[in-house]
Nucleic acid binder design. Structure first.
Lengths: 210, 210
DNA sequence: AATAAATTCAGGGAATTCCCTTAGAAAATA
DNA sequence: TATTTTCTAAGGGAATTCCCTGAATTTATT
C-alpha cells in the first residue's frame, strides 16, 4: 500500500482526488494539506511515500516547498500537480528532484500509473507535457503546427492590428517609434509563419492568441 | 371537410400527399392534376377549397396558372408548393393572391396546419421561408449591425485574401486584371465598413462570410 | 555576474494596399 | 424589354506594409 499525501488549496480538487482513490487498493491517502508550510511541517512527522504537490500555493511557491521537503525527506517521491503546461516549471522541478509532473485534468488511470511509477523509483511525465517538451526542442520554426510563444509586446501589437490600427497609430498609442512597431510586426510574421496582415489576423483568431 | 386539389407532375409527390391525408378527417383530396392547363380547366367544374400548386410545371409557369385560376375562382385558397427556397417567387405569388408557400419537404403537421389556416381565410408561410424573408430584409435595412450581401466574386476575393494572397496573385489566379481585383477589395472594405485587410479578415471569420 | 531574451530604434527600398474617380460590358431582375 | 446589379477595367497618387540590415538598452533567467 502506497501512502499518498496531497497538497492543494482548492477543496474541490482535493475532494476529486479523494473520490478517485477511494477504491484504489494500492493507494491510500494519509494526509491533506493546503499550504506549503503546513506540508513541510506535517511531513516531518507524517510518513508518506508520494506527495502530489500543487505548484500554485497561497503562501509560498511549489519550488521552495519542494526544496525544503527534499532536504529532510530525500526519499519522498514528489509529483508536481498543476494546471499549467509550463515547461520551465517542469524543468526546474525535475532538476530539484521531483519525480513527476502532472496536469490537473489528468484521468484516474494516469494518476494511478504516475503514483505507482514514482513509488517504484521511476519518473513520470504526462504525455501532454512530453509533447510540450518535444515542441519546444523543435522550436526552430520548421514544423507545421507549432506556434511560438508571443511576447507581451507582440500580443499587444497583434491585438491592435486586429482592431485595424495602422503601424503609425500603434506607435502613437504605445508611445514608441514607428520603427519599433514595425519590428514587432515583422517578428510576428516570422513567428507565426504567415505572409501578411491577413495571415496574422487569421492566426490570431483561429489560435486565440489575443 | 375541406376539399383539396393537388397539381404536381411528380407521381411520387402526389402519392405521398395521398397517403398523408388518407386518415385526415378534415381534409379530403378531390382532384389531382399534373399540368397547369388541366388544373385551370378542371377547377372550372370541380369544386375545391384549397389547391396545392406545384410551381415548376411542364406546360406553363405556376405564376401564370395562379393568375388564371384566381380570375374565375377568387375564393380558391392556393398554396404554392415547391422545392426551392426562393423569396422572389414567394413574393410574386403572394402578391397575386396566393395564400401560402410551402416547401416540399414539409411534414404532415405543417401541411395540415397550412391547409386549415388558408381555408379559414388566413395566410400560411413555412417557418423556413419566414426566416429567409427575415434574412433578406435585414440585408436591405440600414440598421447598425448590417452586413451587406456579398456578390459571388467578392466572396471569392475575400476567401483568397484570407489565404494570404496579394492582389496581383488573385488577378493571375482568376484571370482578371489587377485593377479589377482592387475594385472588389475596395467594395469589400466599404460594404463591411472596415479600414483595412485586418478588418476584412476579422469580419470574414467572425461572421462566417466565406 | 553572465548569458539570453525582449524591447527599443533606424535607413532605405520594394511591394502592396488604400483611396479617389470614372465607365463599358455582361448578367440578373422587374 | 427596361432597369438594376455585378463584373470588369483604368489612372494616379497617398499611405501602409513588407523586407533587409544592424544595433543599443532594458529586462529576465541561470
Amino acid at each position: 500500500m502506497i501512502n499518498l499525501a496531497i497538497t492543494d488549496d482548492h477543496p474541490s480538487v482535493v475532494e476529486g482526488l479523494k473520490t478517485m482513490f477511494l477504491d484504489d487498493s494500492f493507494v491510500n491517502i494519509v494526509a491533506v494539506y493546503s499550504t506549503g508550510k503546513s506540508t513541510v511541517e506535517g511531513l516531518k512527522t507524517q510518513q508518506a511515500d508520494v506527495l502530489l504537490l500543487d505548484i500554485n500555493l497561497p503562501d509560498q511557491s511549489g519550488i521552495d516547498t519542494c526544496k525544503q521537503l527534499l532536504e529532510f525527506a530525500p526519499q519522498l517521491a514528489i509529483i508536481a500537480f498543476t494546471s499549467y503546461k509550463d515547461t520551465r516549471h517542469l524543468k526546474e522541478l525535475l532538476g530539484l528532484g521531483a519525480k513527476g509532473y502532472m496536469l490537473k485534468n489528468s484521468s484516474y488511470d494516469e494518476m494511478h500509473h504516475a503514483i505507482l511509477t514514482v513509488y517504484d523509483g521511476g519518473e513520470y511525465l504526462q504525455p501532454e507535457m512530453k509533447d510540450e517538451l518535444v515542441k519546444e526542442s523543435l522550436n526552430r520554426s520548421d514544423t507545421m503546427s507549432y506556434i511560438p510563444k508571443l511576447t507581451r509586446r507582440e500580443k499587444e501589437i497583434l491585438q491592435l492590428i486586429l482592431q485595424e490600427h495602422t503601424t503609425q497609430e500603434m506607435a502613437d498609442k504605445l508611445f514608441i517609434s514607428f520603427k519599433t512597431v514595425e519590428s514587432h510586426r515583422l517578428n510576428l510574421l516570422q513567428k507565426l509563419g504567415v505572409k501578411n496582415t491577413a495571415g496574422l489576423v487569421r492566426m490570431a483568431i483561429e489560435h486565440k492568441l489575443v
